[in-house]
Simulated scan of single mutants.
Amino acid sequence: MKPKIDSTSFGSITVEGKAFEHDILIRLDGRVEKRTKKLSKALYGTSHKISLEEAEHIYEEGTEKIIMGTGQTGFVELSDEAEAFFRKKRCSIELLPTPWAIERWNELEGRIVAMFHVTC
C-alpha cells in the first residue's frame, strides 16, 4: 500500500502521521526506510549527488518510476552513472524539490519508489 505523505519542513517529513527527521526511501510495498546516503557520500563527499551504488540500492525490480525529492530548495542531483543506470532499467525518474515531489508522489499511481532529501 502506497503511504500518503502529509507534509515536510526543513529537516523532517511526515508520512501517515509519523515524523521522520532524516532522508527517507519509500519502497514498492510502502515500507519507509532511512536513506542510505553514505553510498553517495563515500564517493562524492556529499549526499547531494546520487552515486551509481545508491541508485542501485534505490531501484527495485519492476519499478516504473522514481520520484526524487531533491531537498527543500532542490540541491540533490543524479550522477551521470546513476542517470544511465535508471535509463538502462527503463525506469523514468522525476527530480523535484521535496515539497513538490511530495505532491507528485501523493497524486501518482503505479509501481513507484521514492527518495526524499529533507534538508537544503
Score class of each variant (00 low, 15 high):
residue 82 A to S: 09
residue 54 E to K: 01
residue 103 E to V: 06
residue 33 E to R: 14
residue 84 A to S: 09
residue 54 E to L: 04
residue 98 T to Q: 01
residue 52 L to W: 08
residue 48 H to K: 15
residue 50 I to R: 06
residue 104 R to G: 00
residue 74 G to R: 09
residue 60 E to F: 11
residue 73 T to R: 01
residue 17 G to R: 05
residue 51 S to T: 02
residue 41 K to R: 13
residue 16 E to A: 12
residue 44 Y to E: 11
residue 100 W to N: 14
residue 53 E to C: 01
residue 56 E to C: 10
residue 38 K to I: 12
residue 63 T to R: 00
residue 13 I to R: 00
residue 68 M to T: 03
residue 105 W to I: 07
residue 35 R to M: 11
residue 31 R to V: 13
residue 101 A to H: 00
residue 14 T to C: 14
residue 40 S to R: 12
residue 48 H to V: 10
residue 27 R to K: 10
residue 34 K to R: 14
residue 13 I to S: 05
residue 88 K to Y: 11
residue 78 L to E: 07
residue 51 S to E: 03
residue 13 I to D: 01
residue 44 Y to V: 14
residue 71 G to P: 13
residue 105 W to F: 15
residue 17 G to N: 09
residue 56 E to V: 06
residue 35 R to Q: 10
residue 37 K to P: 10
residue 51 S to D: 06
residue 16 E to H: 07
residue 15 V to Q: 03
residue 106 N to A: 15
residue 62 G to Y: 09
residue 53 E to S: 04
residue 47 S to V: 14
residue 44 Y to G: 12
residue 92 S to L: 02
residue 88 K to L: 14
residue 63 T to K: 02
residue 96 L to R: 08
residue 95 L to E: 01
residue 99 P to T: 15
residue 19 A to G: 00
residue 28 L to F: 11
residue 20 F to M: 12
residue 103 E to N: 10
residue 100 W to Q: 15
residue 14 T to W: 09
residue 102 I to N: 07
residue 108 L to C: 05
residue 51 S to C: 02
residue 59 Y to E: 03
residue 101 A to N: 03
residue 51 S to A: 07
residue 49 K to C: 04
residue 25 L to C: 00
residue 61 E to A: 05
residue 94 E to V: 09
residue 97 P to V: 10
residue 29 D to Q: 02
residue 47 S to E: 13
residue 66 I to Q: 07
residue 60 E to V: 13
residue 63 T to P: 00
residue 76 V to P: 04
residue 15 V to G: 01
residue 17 G to H: 04
residue 81 E to C: 10
residue 27 R to L: 07
residue 71 G to Y: 12
residue 13 I to V: 03
residue 45 G to I: 08
residue 15 V to F: 04
residue 87 R to N: 14
residue 18 K to H: 04
residue 100 W to R: 15
residue 66 I to P: 05
residue 25 L to Q: 00
residue 68 M to H: 07
residue 53 E to H: 06
residue 23 D to K: 06
residue 27 R to Q: 06
residue 39 L to R: 08
residue 41 K to P: 00
residue 31 R to L: 15
residue 47 S to N: 15
residue 13 I to Y: 02
residue 19 A to Y: 00
residue 69 G to N: 14
residue 60 E to K: 13
residue 106 N to R: 15
residue 96 L to F: 07
residue 18 K to V: 12
residue 105 W to G: 02
residue 50 I to E: 07
residue 57 H to N: 06
residue 70 T to E: 04
residue 36 T to H: 15
residue 16 E to W: 05
residue 80 D to Q: 14
